[in-house]
């Protein structure tokens, strides 16, 4: 039995400890927003936050998650409001097929958490680990930078 925190709630699973976190979240806890793209840490579609760091959940055994706090796309925003990154995504009509976008958004949110003012180059370097087969890169970059601006504007106003 492995216990961890999932989107603020304590959960327990009997899945074997070598089961990747991605499948535990998707199939045991039925949160389907995180996606399977490569299963090898190469595409970022499965990105979640573990204790605030973005991780590729397809290569994190759930045994390593015991006692940690995991956030998925479903838990990114509080009670129905949108995270600034999500709001920027919608405003820029970023998604095409959308399959990569949960992972993109989780990577971007973690970036802004640790660096509220990334340069365009830092955005590109950080987001380079998330593949988008539909080629939404120009809009992903624009949306991350828009989220930076929006967050700064809110902070200046308050």
């Amino acid at each position: 039995m492995i216990t961890f925190e999932l989107n603020g709630q304590t959960v327990m699973t009997e899945d074997p400890p070598d089961t990747p976190l991605l499948w535990v979240v998707r199939d045991t806890f039925k949160l389907k927003g995180s996606k399977f793209g490569c299963g090898a840490g190469l595409c970022g579609a499965c990105t979640m936050h573990m204790d605030g760091q973005s991780v590729r959940s397809c290569v994190v055994p759930v045994g390593n998650v015991a006692g940690k706090a995991v956030t998925t796309i479903e838990g990114l925003s509080d009670n129905g409001s949108l995270h600034p990154v999500q709001a920027a995504w919608i405003a820029n009509s970023v998604p095409q097929c959308g399959y990569c976008q949960s992972g993109q958004i989780m990577t971007a949110a973690a970036l802004l958490e640790r660096n509220p003012n990334p340069s365009p180059g830092e955005v590109e370097d950080t987001m380079a680990g998330n593949l988008c087969r539909c080629g939404c890169y120009p809009r992903i970059k624009a949306a991350v930078l828009a989220a930076v601006d929006a967050t700064n504007a809110v902070e200046e106003a308050s």
Binding site: S34, T72, L82, V94
Partner: peptide, 19 residues
């Protein structure tokens, strides 16, 4: 785009999500 919101919140359902 009418699908932008559900594709930015993880709510959009794909074939692989059918349970």
């Amino acid at each position: 785009r009418i699908d932008a919101a559900e594709k930015s919140t993880g709510e959009a359902v794909y074939g692989i999500d059918f349970d």
